[in-house]
């Protein structure tokens, strides 16, 4: 995944408008790109070509459905581990091998590996946490959310 900012001129006004609009949602209809284009005065072909380019240059990470594990009867859980530097690559491989690990970040702290598990059954959180502890010999700290305070942040492109 791209970690560096794109050159300032990489996106034009229409690209920015597309990114801003599509963060809020995308219609379920027979010709959704034409519908999105109509609202932004862009043709259907133009919308599709711009999205393909934005994906290719790494301006967007995903375009599609976002699932809610909890609504499905499952659960998300933030987890953290303190991984010795010399074992880091080995442990990344073991942790990422679990399909339930949806995101994983290295962070600067004694707890230096932070990942999110997305499970279809809530009891899997503890099971997979225990599996990872068994595979790595390292403690997995579980930080399930107790409350969410979220207003609806959007990046302004």
């Amino acid at each position: 995944m791209r970690r560096e900012p794109l050159p300032k001129d990489a996106l034009d006004e229409a690209d920015r408008a597309l990114i801003n609009t599509l963060q809020d949602g995308f219609p379920v209809s027979a010709a959704p790109f034409a519908e999105v284009g109509a609202a932004l005065a862009l043709s259907e072909d133009d919308v599709i070509a711009r999205l393909a380019r934005l994906r290719d240059i790494g301006a967007i990470t995903r375009f599609g459905p976002f699932l809610d594990a909890a609504a499905m009867g499952g659960a998300f859980c933030l987890c953290a581990m303190a991984v010795p530097e010399e074992r880091f690559d080995e442990v990344v491989t073991l942790v990422n091998a679990h399909i339930e690990v949806a995101h994983n970040y290295e962070r600067k702290h004694a707890l230096n590996m932070w990942f999110v598990m997305a499970c279809e059954r809530p009891e899997q959180i503890k099971e997979i946490g225990a599996q990872i502890e068994g595979e790595t010999g390292l403690k997995v700290h579980l930080f399930p959310k107790l409350e969410e305070f979220f207003i609806g942040f959007r990046v302004q492109a």
Partner: peptide
């Protein structure tokens, strides 16, 4: 897709921007 969104199983169909690429490094 419509029903899955109504039931909240799909939160939304949307685009996720790359914060880093957009300068929020």
């Amino acid at each position: 897709f419509t029903r899955l969104q109504e039931e909240g199983i799909i939160r939304r169909i949307a685009l996720a921007p790359n914060h880093y690429a957009l300068g929020m490094v």
